[in-house]
Design a protein around this nucleic acid. Sequence first.
DNA 1: CTTGGAATGTCAACAAGGCTGACGTAAATT
DNA 2: AATTTACGTCAGCCTTGTTGACATTCCAAG
Lengths: 165, 165
Amino acid sequence: MAETKGGESLLFLTDEQLRKGIEAMFFAYRGFTADPDRILEGLDYGRAHHRAVHFIHRSPGTTVSNLLAILGVTKQSLNRVLRALIDDGLVRSEKGKRDARERHLYLTPKGQELERSLSDAQRARMRAAYRAAGPAAVAGFRQVLEAMMDPEMRAAYNRLKEGGA
Amino acid sequence: MAETKGGESLLFLTDEQLRKGIEAMFFAYRGFTADPDRILEGLDYGRAHHRAVHFIHRSPGTTVSNLLAILGVTKQSLNRVLRALIDDGLVRSEKGKRDARERHLYLTPKGQELERSLSDAQRARMRAAYRAAGPAAVAGFRQVLEAMMDPEMRAAYNRLKEGGA
DNA sequence: CTTGGAATGTCAACAAGGCTGACGTAAATT
DNA sequence: AATTTACGTCAGCCTTGTTGACATTCCAAG
């Protein structure tokens, strides 16, 4: 058996194990988005709208450039999505008081309603998975995911974590 | 503290914990695809080509309909990708001997070379994450991901696992 | 006060990669 | 002989990403 000096097996680092992890990520991500996608289809919205709504809900009053950084898309791409959400009355855009160039984004009641239905669906699957795997597995799950992020994304993720704590 | 009769804490099932998991999936998936994406950009290929190449490498001789089921796209969409890979000499398509309607797909040496560079990049990140998190965390990571999949995808995933064992 | 840069919005054009629908062909199955 | 299966392909559409250019508004620095 492959063992380190400390006696810890390194078998979990074989290419075979890594490949399984890669495929698990692929298939799991499909499940992860499946339920919200089902809700969004039929409405005029897609995954991009879901993401915007999620992070506006998460950080009410966030600015456009803030959202841009988190979502990692161009302003033109985000603007299209935001435009639709604002026109449809799901998102409210407010000029900044301190800095009037910024637009602060908020969900309207209607927007909150959509957010709720999307996140309920997504959480339900996540909850089932968490329950099936147990708390120790969940801790490991989060550790590996965090280690997998790009540093800037990890920073964004942790900023969100604090804000929500 | 919220405890079950068995004394097991259920705090890991709170909406807050679930939300963190959801955001972790989002940010981690970005990291997960970032390195192959960088390689693919500039070449005429995208993520769709990566996926096809990955699963053909994984199951040499697999049929088109097989691949269709695993990737979960339409034949028109897959065909566009496959067409490019075949025309560029990365994939070889062979009429079935037993059933001549089927096309069996193989990577050419050139295709194997691309697959290798993509999976090397992706594995490097995965390996770093695994190493940082440790074997116990990795086990939990895989458990949660597996529990998150749709049943058919879990079946496909496990079929792949066996094949590779 | 002027000027540079930041934050935002918007128009136009384009590409990747999904989708549906329709049609064709070859081969297996009944 | 008729039907079904596996595959390929044409045509068109949608979402969501991209680049480039340009306008506006406003903060901040000189």
